[in-house]
Amino acid sequence: MGRLTTLLWAVEHHECDVENEVICAPENVNILFEYKEPWFSVGPVNFTRTSFLIFLAAAVVIGLLYFGLRRNRLVPTKFEAAIQSLVEFVRDGIARDIIGPEGVRYTPYLLSIFMLILVGNLFELAPLINFPITSRMALPAFLSLITYVIFVFVGFKKNGIRYLTDTAWPKAVPIGLRWLVGLIEIVSTFILRPITLAVRLFANLVAGHLMLSLLLGSGIAFVLAVGEIGPKAGIGVVWFAFGLLMFVFELLVGVLQAYIFTLLTAVYIQTSIHPAH
């Protein structure tokens, strides 16, 4: 089943040299992110702890939406009101406000990625899970690929070949700079956008998980080693306090990154519909 949670890697593996070091750090940080041992296999595909967490995130999203929306009540409970306002926020605050009235049709996709990324990010903070599935490249890469396919498809569908020519030859720019701006636009739109979209999410969550694992893991390791190292175990208290601060900060990052990913997806779709802007 693998390590219970990567937060406790230092404790689990007794890797930390508490006598000579001031913080525990693994030799290879990948150990904090990789769960390769399969629970079971379907043909060549291994089902790992990360696979399980990805499906768990999907189940949590479906559960939240199901219990939030199943009853068509005039006066919702607090939970129902929260879920409904979340859905309304994605539909009105992101889809309609960014893309325009025609943007409402993209709400199912925007809501799906928002909820999945949000839950995936907050897995970092969930007890016993303590691992954001978005700190693995699979989900960010796949979702930004879908976003890429959608906004390129929409661009050509709405504007035909002018989508490409208007991007490469922006008429609003003075002629002398037009080729340069066009080149930058082409590269940024068709090459950098999907990469930055995926990497922004992935890197933020990797950093967060790294910080939390090192701080909380070191904190626990040093405090538990109080018998061996005496007063030096106090370092553990400091690391743990920092870790708790980061914990709150990661809550903000998790929500913000989910919002940013969804918002940028909407912005990209909007610029494909109106490339002149």
Binding site: P38, S51, I54, A57, I113, M137
Partner: peptide
């Protein structure tokens, strides 16, 4: 992206 996780991610999405 790791293949196993990619497949899980696609199916879950």
């Amino acid at each position: 992206p790791e293949t196993n996780e990619l497949i899980a991610g696609i199916v879950a999405f």
